[in-house]
């Protein structure tokens, strides 16, 4: 058994695909029509054969209250690893991305939290370089 997929619940798949590719820099890997929606995955250009992120529609009635409650408390349900949180913060903020937490040392890692515009907060993290 291997972990090859993980999901993020998005309020609009087209908007999410734009954000996750154009802004964050991931690449579309799959886009399979599935009735009202599609099965869309993106991958990191640094790991095209790595874990795929599924842009999952948040249409279930329980999904949005769950997401809103997490956002209200500033909780990122999903986290990505980056080489340099400070550099990513600078790049993404310049692209208009809203951060609820700027780069901050949290023990062995530096973290920052941003809004993915699709109803989620996302944490980026990198090891602290001493």
């Amino acid at each position: 058994m291997r972990i090859t997929l993980t999901s993020v619940l998005v309020d609009d798949q087209a908007k999410a695909l734009d954000f996750y590719t154009q802004v964050l820099g991931f690449e579309k890997k799959h886009d399979v029509p599935m009735g009202d929606s599609a099965w869309i995955t993106v991958v990191s250009p640094q790991a095209r054969d790595g874990v795929e992120l599924v842009l999952e529609p948040d249409q279930h009635p329980a999904a949005r209250p769950f997401k809103e409650a997490l956002v209200a408390d500033g909780i990122p349900f999903t986290a990505f690893t980056v080489d340099d949180v400070e550099a990513e913060h600078t790049r993404l903020a310049a692209a208009g991305v809203v951060f609820t937490q700027p780069p901050t040392r949290m023990g062995p890692v530096t973290t920052a939290v941003f809004d993915d515009t699709c109803g989620n907060l996302i944490q980026i993290q990198s090891p602290v370089s001493e």
Binding site: D73, G74, I75, P76, T100, Q101, T104, R105, M106, G107, T111, V113, L121
Partner: peptide
């Protein structure tokens, strides 16, 4: 301007 999440993380780490 810290969220509850950030404050919890700071309490746990720092």
């Amino acid at each position: 301007g810290q969220t509850l999440f950030e404050l919890c993380a700071r309490m746990a780490t720092a």
